[in-house]
Design a protein around this nucleic acid. Structure first.
Lengths: 334, 334
DNA sequence: CTGAAAGCGCTTACAG
DNA sequence: CTGAAAGCGCTTACAG
């Protein structure tokens, strides 16, 4: 139960001033012209007692916390969990710590999280925004803190946007199925106004239109209860028996959609070809393995941290960037 | 770009003292005998400018951060991602924020994370410990901060342990397979000294011994490169063609094991029955669906936060608790 | 080459 | 009923 150390009692112990200790700790001996002898003496003592400066005090004094506040949709969702890990790896390299929270796409929750992060004086905000937090985000930007928006964006918010080309992702997926000879390609998506969902929908519509195919769309309500997807899927497929291919636009819709297909006894890819949006570690393990549109998660997370690093050091960076997706071909579209 | 507020300038603005403002903010008007008129005046102004006190300053002064430091094996791993979400939900109820980091089971990484958390003055540590951080953990406990260990424990560390009965989980799984008529039950596990792995192994050995069956064990090295699991699995199964059931002891071994079985053309459950340790959202979607030993994650995460809450308020709590697992029967063991 | 002092934004005895 | 002062652990001009 060693006594709590501080530069104050180190200074007292060594009979030097607090400012001298501070200078040595911050590697400013040269700059502040502390004699090598004194410097070494202090350094040795610090090492001996294994002293580490109090970040909280440094933060209060410097206005920098080295903490980034992250708002995800849900940390338990595989997509966001991988995002979290990507952010963590890159943030470590720059010495940032991460505060993670889940908004569940609820704007009240998100607003309150932003408020809390602000209280903790985070250096920057990384957020997958629900609709309804435009004002909070703009206020934060007004305060001069970097705000990085990802996965979907809010057009009225002038944050940095790190996005993926969702439109092209689905557009290409439709074309691919079409080339494989599928005639009746359906889209099963979320009934959502979020940009990533609207872009995926538009990619589908435009591709279907350009190839003069028939359009089949099932828009599911955003529900916590994913069990409800199954009956809706079944109803949809019974209503349109011609469907011979489906693109699912989110991870959990894909999972539950596959469940419904299995339940109906549909054979993949013979009866119906399947493409999932967002690749998933498990898709290659399914029988059959599932073709997927893969988002470049590592590029996204790296870019987010790079932008923050740049902004915090007053370096100019792009305001918006779109990364391309990649179609991973597997057995479900053979 | 509103001017940064503080109780200092609120006090100046309202012509009252700083301490009066502080008292009102902390709801101590009654206790500190501030007149209702003044109280209301201050409260109105605070609401008007939307003032929220600086947590960093409060923290420095109070020695409480309301931040908990969490060390997981890997936040991207589905098991730990769900743990993270469980902790978050419960922590929110008590007003704690969470700092998450991944150790990758590397003791150097974990030690450095603990050090960093300490610098940030976290109120408690929640850790899935790798071997080799016993000393750090004991030091932290010595400093009086709650340390909660979960998933696996370190016998030399007198932290609070919130664990799952891994031994019984595997023991029962073997018995179940045996009752289903399986004669040659194998265990595919990690070559690890961590308690959760040792307990699972022991559960297997004891159950096999008690029913006088033959034992088949494959111990895989702890590798990042999961691709290597496939060839080792194949070699193992070719060497012991009698095996008619397998228990996989971790999530990712299960995934890759299934991949290997699929590659070999083995039919589940006809050729081989399969049980995975740790249930997984996707196991019910596989063809066939996969029987699994489920850990009570919510109970674990709730208990962790409850212990912290109790300790931080000087309430007595149990030092160690084990939760039972549950076998979820699905098609892979039919 | 080194130190005394102010201040970051709070809270908490203490005085009146 | 209210305020002045000390102090949490730092850093940064500034003085010498």
């Amino acid at each position: 139960m060693t006594h709590k150390h501080s530069i104050k009692n180190i200074a007292a112990q060594l009979n030097v001033s607090i400012s001298t200790v501070s200078a040595v700790i911050n590697g400013k001996s040269k700059e502040r012209r502390i004699s090598p002898i004194l410097t070494e003496k202090i350094e040795r003592y610090i090492k001996e007692i294994n002293f580490i400066p109090n970040k909280i005090a440094q933060n209060l004094r410097n206005g920098r916390s080295n903490i980034l506040g992250v708002i995800l949709e849900n940390i338990a969702d595989p997509f966001f969990a991988v995002i979290a890990r990507g952010l963590e790896i890159k943030a470590n390299k720059y010495g940032y710590k991460l505060l993670f929270s889940s908004s569940e796409n609820n704007s009240e929750v998100a607003n309150s999280l932003l408020q809390t992060y602000r209280q903790y004086n985070v250096d920057a905000y990384i957020v997958a925004p629900p609709l309804g937090i435009e004002e909070s985000l703009n206020n934060l930007i007004g305060e001069g803190k970097p705000v990085i928006v990802f996965d979907r964006n809010l057009p009225e918010v002038k944050a940095h946007n790190v996005l993926v080309d969702n439109y092209e992702g689905v557009f290409n997926a439709v074309n691919y199925l079409s080339k494989k000879g599928r005639q009746n390609i359906a889209l099963v998506t979320l009934d959502s106004k979020q940009t990533q969902m609207e872009d995926r929908l538009k990619g589908y519509k435009d591709s279907i239109k350009s190839t003069k195919q028939k359009s089949y769309m099932l828009k599911l309500p955003y529900e916590k209860n994913t069990e409800l997807i199954k009956p809706k899927m079944i109803h949809f497929l019974e209503k349109y028996p011609d469907i011979d291919a489906i693109i699912f636009t989110t991870n959990y819709i894909t999972s539950n959609g596959l469940y419904a297909l299995k339940y109906m006894g549909k054979s993949i890819p013979n009866d119906i070809a399947v493409i999932g949006y967002d690749d998933n570690h498990n898709f290659k393990l399914y029988t059959p393995s599932i073709t997927a549109v893969q988002q470049p998660i590592e590029e996204v997370t790296d870019k987010i941290i790079e932008i923050i690093q740049a902004k915090l050091n007053n370096v100019e960076v792009e305001q918006e960037i779109y990364f391309p997706t990649k179609l991973i071909e597997r057995d479900s579209t053979k």
